[in-house]
Computed example of a mutant assay.
Amino acid sequence: MTEIIARLAEIGTRYDAVFCDLWGCLHNGKAAYPEAVAALQAFRAKGGAVVLLTNAPRPNASVARQIDALGVPRDAWDLIVSSGDAAQMGMLSGAVGRRVHHIGAVKDEVFFTEFADDLAAYAATQPPITRVPLAEAEGVVCTGLANDLTEIPNDYRAQLLLAKTMGLPMLCANPDIVVDLGDKRLYCAGALAEAYEAMGGEALYFGKPHPPIYDLARRRLAALTGPDDAQILCIGDGIGTDVQGGVSEGLDTLFVTGGLAADQFGPDAANPDAALLLPWLEARELSATFAIGFLR
C-alpha cells in the first residue's frame, strides 16, 4: 500500500541516498522548484547523498551546466548520472556498431565528444566511433528529435522505415516518451524508439527503468561513499521510468504525483487524492512505497 506523505523529511532518515529525477521533480525545464531544492539540501545536511538520476541524453557535465542555468545550486546534489552517460558506455562498447547515424538535436552533439572521467578512460581503450549518413551506418544513435519544439515522431517515419529495412539496431539515449517544458509537452527519444519497435526494429535502452543506468549510479555512489550497501530511495514523477525502475531494482520509491500525471489525482496537485491514486497505481500493477504531490 502506497503511503502519501507531505515532505521528504518525514522519511529521509531511513535512507543513506536518494536517486532523484530532474525534470518534473526538481525543475520544469525553465526554472528550479525552490521547495524541491530545499528538500534535497536538507537531506544532504543530515548526511544523505543525492544522486540526480536523469534520462537526459547528454553526459553529466552537460546536465550540470543546464541545471546551473535553471537555478539548481551545487549544494543540492552530490552526483549526476544520466541516461546519456549509460548510453555512451553502450555506444563505446559497440552495441550498435562503430559506424553510427545520429538522430537528435544540435544541443545533443556533446554525446559524441564529452565523457565523464570513468567513460573517457574506457573510450581510450576502444576503437573509435564514426558518425556517418544513414545509408552507411551499422546502427542508429537516437538522442531525441532534431527540433522537439515543432516536430513529432511521425515526421521521422520514412527515416525509421529505412533504418528498419536495413536491419539497423537503435541505441535510445533517453527512454522517456514525453516531457513537460513549462506548460508544453514535448516528445523525447523514447517516442522514436517506441515507433521504431512498432515497425519491427530493434531498440536498446540504457536509461530508466532499464538496469544500465542503475548499475552506473550504484558504482559512482559507492566510489563516493564507500561499499555499495546504501539504503536508497528512488524519487520521480515517471510511473513507467522512475517507479518501475526503482521497483525492478528492489529499491523503495517516492512517486511525485504532481508531475506528468498531475491531472489524474484530483484538483489539488499538491495533495493527491488517495481514492484516485491507489486504483490508478493498481491498474498499472505498480505500488510506489510513498507518494507526494510535489517534492518538498
Rank of each mutant, 00 (worst) to 15 (best):
34 P>Q: 01
256 V>I: 10
30 K>H: 06
168 L>D: 07
208 K>G: 08
116 A>N: 12
220 R>M: 06
5 I>C: 11
95 A>V: 14
203 A>D: 04
15 Y>T: 07
134 L>D: 05
140 V>C: 03
262 A>N: 13
18 V>Q: 00
102 H>L: 13
51 V>L: 02
138 E>D: 08
101 H>K: 10
294 F>T: 08
267 P>D: 08
41 Q>V: 11
231 Q>M: 13
225 T>R: 13
126 Q>V: 03
164 K>A: 15
15 Y>H: 02
54 T>L: 12
199 M>T: 03
124 A>I: 05
15 Y>N: 02
209 P>L: 00
292 I>H: 00
136 E>F: 02
36 A>R: 07
26 L>M: 13
113 T>A: 12
145 L>F: 05
170 M>N: 06
12 G>S: 15
20 C>F: 04
246 G>T: 01
263 D>E: 12
3 E>K: 14
84 G>W: 04
198 A>R: 15
38 A>C: 04
189 A>S: 10
16 D>M: 02
157 R>Y: 15
290 F>A: 13
108 D>K: 09
151 E>K: 00
170 M>G: 07
163 A>Y: 02
103 I>H: 10
9 A>M: 13
130 T>W: 04
54 T>W: 06
180 D>K: 15
63 V>N: 02
26 L>T: 12
105 A>G: 12
225 T>C: 09
140 V>I: 12
140 V>E: 02
1 M>L: 08
170 M>L: 14
77 W>F: 09
213 I>A: 01
208 K>H: 08
202 E>R: 15
203 A>G: 13
82 S>A: 11
70 L>P: 12
7 R>W: 06
260 L>S: 14
249 E>H: 01
8 L>E: 05
289 T>G: 03
148 D>K: 13
180 D>C: 15
51 V>S: 00
138 E>R: 05
283 A>H: 15
268 D>E: 03
18 V>I: 06
167 G>E: 15
279 P>N: 13
221 L>V: 01
61 A>T: 14
168 L>S: 06
12 G>P: 01
129 I>S: 05
46 K>Y: 11
58 R>G: 06
160 L>Y: 03
2 T>Y: 02
5 I>Q: 08
246 G>N: 02
73 P>W: 10
200 G>P: 02
35 E>A: 14
182 G>K: 07
200 G>H: 08
180 D>R: 15
4 I>W: 10
189 A>C: 08
212 P>V: 04
41 Q>L: 11
169 P>D: 11
231 Q>S: 13
215 D>Y: 00
39 A>D: 03
169 P>I: 01
179 V>N: 03
95 A>Y: 05
261 A>K: 11
91 M>T: 05
120 A>Y: 02
230 A>Y: 03
268 D>N: 08
224 L>Q: 10
27 H>C: 08
180 D>W: 15
195 A>T: 07
